[in-house]
Simulated assay, not measured.
Amino acid sequence: MNAVLMVVNFAFDAYLMVVLLRLWLQLVRADFYNPFSQTIVKLTHPLVAPMRRVIPSIGRLDTATLVLALLVAVAKFFVIALIAGRAVNPIAVLINAPVYILYEIFQVVFWILLFRVIMSWVSQGRSPIDYVLMQLTEPMLAPIRKIIPPIGMFDLSILVALFLLKVLETLIFLDLLGGR
């Protein structure tokens, strides 16, 4: 039973990360003709397209994709509770879903920053994925570079961003989970 729960948990987490990536790509107006962006769009389009007919966007925020993220989080809690044989508390699910999405946003940002570091070692800016990763992360890294410019060939902005991300994540989730 634990293996089934682990697989289901991973599947929901992975799909939620893809949905959040789509939302992030739209917010930064990334190149949607890039192969990486096209993969994200194709994985989410079957669920987002029908929702867009009913749920309008608010400015650059694609509310249909945001609602899909909430539905994926809610579905995860229900499915895991059903597999584990536990009772489902709908109020707790509705309260925990946005917190879970916030946590997953931190995870997506962390992995994208880490992936950008790894890609900089491997492809050195020649891959189409590098371009999308730059579009996603530059809004966070540019302000850090104004304070801490690159030292020779070393750009410490990603390291500082990862550190600040983990500090912020710890502060938020200690408060939300009552750790203080």
Results as ranks from 00 to 15, higher is better:
P149R: 09
I40C: 01
K76M: 14
F12C: 12
P90G: 13
Q124Y: 13
L171D: 04
T65S: 08
P90D: 14
G179V: 14
L164D: 08
R52H: 08
V18E: 07
V41E: 06
D175F: 09
Y33H: 09
F10C: 06
Q124D: 12
R52P: 00
I147K: 06
D31T: 10
P98A: 08
H45A: 14
F32T: 10
Y103M: 11
L21S: 09
V72L: 09
S120N: 11
P35H: 08
L16A: 11
G152A: 08
P139Q: 00
I172Y: 15
P98C: 15
L136Q: 11
I80P: 08
K76I: 02
D13A: 13
N34R: 07
L177K: 08
Q124E: 15
S123W: 11
R86C: 06
L21I: 11
G152E: 00
V117A: 12
V117M: 05
I118E: 04
I95W: 03
I151G: 06
A73L: 13
Y131V: 15
F32W: 04
V117I: 15
K76T: 04
L43M: 05
F115P: 01
L156V: 00
S37I: 03
P139M: 09
G85M: 01
N89H: 13
A87F: 10
V117F: 08
D62K: 01
F173G: 13
V108K: 00
A161Y: 00
V72F: 05
L136P: 05
V41D: 03
F78D: 04
I172K: 09
